[in-house]
């Protein structure tokens, strides 16, 4: 049983976390269904099972803060408040999509919500996120930049360049490594010189070693809040390693068969962030009806957004020729 007498998170935030994680889960499941119906083409990388990380930051961040995520970024985009039809519409290549079909699943961007892009080349966005953080420091404003990435990123050069630069200039940034144990098809432990791919590198950049259960929404929320506050108060960057597990394969094309059955079973049955959080809400004496009302509300929102996306027109082919340049066009000679 949990000790409910000394609750630092509170019912309001707990229900926000619950609603947020459910939304991320149900939209990802819907994206998978739409793939099977061939309404979504190309590739997609689902964050099923990793919802507590994006969800906790989504609740902890403020309007105006900047987030950067990877090609596995549907959840992180939704977590900032982007519309479900904006995300599903983009995956389906419809006009209602966040970028009208010009970016696709791996590049979701919603600047109005602080979603400064989803990046599909490993490591690049850590260096770019430093730039928005640098701008906040330069302008003496209080936004915090948060950069999500996977365990595989910790072995690429840009990761190390970015951490060093963030530290030497004490940038207001939080780096969040979602360690789901597999870089793509290969176990991260098979190809990494340290046990904890991000946290064990922290000391090289004079950063604190932070490891958190990324499937525990409360722990994630506390960790996120502390790192965000540190950055906002001008006390520099943090590097968080959140342990988690993806329920599906790396991408649409991957059934994930390289993972032992027992391991998959354990994570799905015993460590699912949403199943476990539902139990916790009940432990905190939250009315089951409140919990299921939120579930029903989100289900309905996802269904409605799916219908909006399906009925949204496909883009005009004129869109091909727009927005290479800031003047809106693509001409390169007079």
């Amino acid at each position: 049983m949990v000790d409910i007498s000394n609750d630092d998170i509170g019912e309001i935030n707990r229900l926000k976390l619950w609603e947020m994680m459910l939304k991320l889960r149900l939209v990802e499941k819907k994206a998978y269904d739409l793939f099977l119906q061939n309404l979504i083409k190309g590739t997609s990388h689902l964050a099923l099972g990793q919802e507590a990380i994006a969800g906790a930051f989504g609740v902890a961040l403020q309007e105006g803060d900047y987030t950067f995520c990877t090609y596995r970024g549907h959840a992180h985009t939704l977590a900032r408040g982007s519309s479900i039809e904006g995300v599903l519409g983009e995956l389906m290549g419809r006009q209602c999509g966040l970028m009208k079909g010009k970016g696709g699943s791996m590049h979701l961007t919603d600047v109005d919500k602080g979603v400064m892009g989803s990046y599909a080349i490993i490591g690049a966005h850590l260096t770019i996120a430093n730039g928005t953080a640098l701008a906040s420091k330069y302008n003496k404003t209080k936004e915090v930049s948060v950069c999500f990435f996977g365990d595989g990123t910790t072995n690429i050069g840009a990761f190390h360049e970015a951490l060093n630069m963030a530290k030497i200039w004490d940038l207001p940034i939080v780096f969040v490594c979602e360690n789901n144990l597999y870089m793509e098809y290969t176990a991260i432990s098979d190809v990494t010189a340290v046990e904890h791919p991000a946290a064990d590198r922290a000391s090289a950049y004079s950063l604190e070693k932070i490891i958190v259960d990324g499937n525990d929404a409360d722990e994630m929320f506390r960790t996120a809040q502390a790192a965000i506050q540190k950055a906002r108060e001008g006390n520099g960057p943090s590097l968080i390693e959140a342990k988690t597990y993806r329920h599906s394969g790396h991408s649409r094309a991957d059934p994930g068969k390289y993972r032992p059955d027992e391991e998959v079973k354990d994570w799905l049955e015993n460590k699912d962030p949403i199943t476990n959080y539902r139990k916790r809400l009940l432990d905190y004496n939250i009315d089951e009806k409140v919990i299921s009302d939120i579930e029903n509300k989100i289900k309905q929102e996802v269904e409605e957004a799916t219908e909006i996306s399906k009925s949204s027109p496909i883009p005009d082919t004129k869109e091909i020729f727009t927005d290479v340049w800031a003047d809106g066009g693509y001409e390169w000679h007079n």
């Binding site: 900047y66 400064m116 490591g123 690049a124 966005h125 850590l126 260096t127 770019i128 996120a129 430093n130 730039g131 928005t132 953080a133 640098l134 701008a135 906040s136 330069y138 302008n139 930049s145 050069g157 840009a158 360049e161 970015a162 060093n164 630069m165 030497i168």
Partner: peptide
Amino acid sequence: APISEQAILGAAMGAAMT
């Protein structure tokens, strides 16, 4: 800046985005 060309251009890009 340190000898980190990716970090230099990444930081410049991110700053320009704002």
